[in-house]
Design a protein around this nucleic acid. Structure first.
Lengths: 394, 394
DNA sequence: TTACTTAGTTTTGTGATCGAAGAAAGTGAG
DNA sequence: CTCACTTTCTTCGATCACAAAACTAAGTAA
């Protein structure tokens, strides 16, 4: 099953939002929800009623009084419905199940070999999701009568350009054998739940945004790992653009001398200058024996001159592109995630370039940060995407 | 009176949209409106009733039958309420009144001297608007009993950074004496109607979008005249960003050798390379005696080698920045307006650069065009902004 | 015990919308 | 000219999301 149109939160304080408030601890009682949502107590009561009857929320006894009647505490049921999520990377995939509030129930990291082709890779990952979903209570005693382990949908993040609407992969740089593959259709054939496919950077953006800044309207999240991508939040929603390729800045040209050739056939692409893969290649060409990004990061940590210089150059390159983006889009926050986000020299140069090249008005109140949520950002975003559809439809 | 928050079209087929449909001729009867809006006939009838009673719509007899009952024709009353609009430019201002459907009733171009300071300039322009609004039927016989010439609000476009929320101007490049001036507050003191202030590029974007592509979700409009700005439409709405500075790409750095100094203190800014002002300066430095942009455009038309080369360079510079924007934002359409939009060599280089530097996926279905609406795009956009507020509030 | 707070429910009302039914005003075939 | 059928538009409940008010529940503080 493929889902093409964006979810609409018809109602202020819709079901998703309520679930999230409760799950995050922002709301514990109906009264809290009423205050948060701005809805009247009666409406909230009615809503909560509906959510409870759907098994998406449960009452867990009474809380502390604050000078009046004690609140009836609400919680997202543990062991209830879950969604599956897959965050596919260049060498590893993060797979997990999450409850309907977006909290990770189980997460696992598996090695993958992209070059084995889509069928083999996806088969293995789907099997893992199915296995996780079937035993969501592995480490807890069975409890309650809620339908245990009902898998409501799967979200998949792909490290390359995806047409979200169709679920099809389009000309990926580093995924040989995947071009044109319809991930959504394939998965739909393997497992009978809604499958939503999106770019990994988009999912990171959504996950990070919902986790760290749900209240902000406009944000840009950069994912700098083996490749470079970005996800855009506009008016609180993921902006995908006309073809679903929004945020794909990997082949924007940056000044670099010499301009390194890119897998896309051009030279001087951001990805060819500032991605993890580019750093590895560049160091090797300088005769430094590194095998992968981990090695490069270790060298930088150790203060290696060449590696650090390259990191700085990468930071400037990212900053250069990001400066245009910030001027153009004027977001409230720019956050960088991915493995390169932990590289201090890179981050520092990026920040510097950004402040130097942006309109003062645009950087005046701009937050520039690191994506804080850890290895589960991707699957969190994927889950949110699925939840947004599944719960809204409920 | 200052208006701070964005308009929300709470209702599908809201009053504005209905007015626009009727005014544009897309709808002539209630039945048409029902088909267009997807609302039930009963709802439409009720709505139309309300609009008629507010004097925003009128019935003008019966139309042709199409095999059944004849439709009762609807029209936007001529000589009814109007909004005023001012599109301030570097040397001229376009001033006009528009009816509530966004159609220009009267338009006039006045010479202005920005350097006279905000009070003098705005006083003159407001006086002109007031004069126009007082006699909206100058060339028509008085007709009907509708309140004639009721001015419902004024929209103002400023050729520099504006904090839309407050109506304050922030560090403009080419507006000496205007920095920090609160246009909205000043105007509110002079004339007692809502005043909405925005950047001129934003207004051009809104005007062009509503005129040419109201059905598209994501668009970028470039205004290339004396300066360079852009306006962004995201999800059908003007995207202003965190500080209201979104779209301000004038000080993005581009490769240029030598990098010309910019008024902002940096060098190599897009504005310093590709704006009309930059072309004039550059030609003069080459010893070509031109006094203004008109002269430059004439030289290019005449095939002057230096001027044409500069125009091409400008086109490439704009294309370079636009390529990042297109990759990042993935719009459905990019349109260029302003006086430089008629410069063929510039346009050609821009297009070329864009296709060369963008992700194929992003340009695959991308429309690249010239803004077609003429000198009234700006005031049309301004009027739409005002109407969006005024009619929605009605 | 009394007064006050906070929490949550029930009842009733409002506004936007839809759907069904019907009224108004035609066309066109026989 | 009549009858069947269309198209247009209105009227009249029914529904849905939400709010306001009144009320119950269950506490604290004095």
């Amino acid at each position: 099953m493929t889902i093409d149109d964006a979810p609409r939160e018809t109602l202020r304080g819709g079901p998703r939002e309520m679930l999230r408030w409760v799950a995050s601890g922002a709301a514990v009682s109906r009264a809290d929800l009423s205050r948060l949502s701005g809805l009247s107590p009666s409406t909230v009561s009615q809503r909560v009623e509906a959510l409870i009857s759907q098994g998406l929320l449960e009452e867990t006894g009474a809380g502390r009084s604050r000078g009046g009647r004690r609140p009836r505490q609400l919680a997202v049921p543990t062991g209830g419905a879950v969604v599956g999520a897959i965050d596919l990377g260049a060498h590893h995939a993060r797979v997990g199940t999450l409850d309907l509030s977006g909290r990770v129930v189980q997460g696992r990291t598996l090695p993958v070999r992209i070059e084995d082709g889509p069928e083999a890779v996806l088969d293995a990952l789907l099997a893992e999701v199915a296995a996780l979903a079937a035993v969501p209570l592995s480490d807890q005693a069975a409890r309650g009568d809620a339908a245990v382990g009902a898998l409501r949908g799967i979200g998949i993040g792909i490290p390359g350009p995806v047409q979200h609407a169709t679920g099809r992969i389009v000309s990926p740089s580093r995924m040989p054998g995947w071009n044109g593959f319809d991930v959504a259709a394939f998965c739909a054939g393997q497992i009978d739940v809604p499958v939503i496919v999106d770019n990994d950077a988009n999912l990171m953006a959504l996950g990070a945004h919902r986790t760290a800044h749900p209240e902000l309207d406009h944000a840009v999240y950069i994912k700098a790992g083996t490749g470079i991508g970005s996800g855009v939040i506009s008016s609180g929603r993921l902006h995908r653009g006309a073809q679903g390729s929004a945020g794909d800045i990997s082949h924007c040209r940056v000044v670099a001398d010499p301009a390194p050739p890119c897998t896309c056939g051009n030279a001087g692409c951001l990805e060819a200058v500032a991605s993890g893969a580019a750093l590895v290649t560049a160091l090797r060409e300088q005769g430094v024996p590194v095998s992968d990004l981990t090695g490069v990061l270790r060298l930088i940590d150790d203060g290696d001159r060449h590696a650090t210089a390259l990191a700085r150059q990468a930071g400037r390159a990212i900053g250069e592109i990001l400066a245009v983006v910030v001027n153009f889009f004027n977001p409230q926050v720019v956050a960088i995630g991915g493995r390169l986000a932990d590289c201090e020299p890179l981050l520092a140069s990026m920040r510097g370039t950004l402040y130097e090249r942006c309109l003062p008005l645009a950087t005046q109140t701009l937050l520039i940060e690191r994506v804080s949520a850890g290895q589960d950002v991707g699957i969190t975003g994927a889950a949110h995407l699925v939840i947004d559809h599944v719960v809204a439809a409920a």
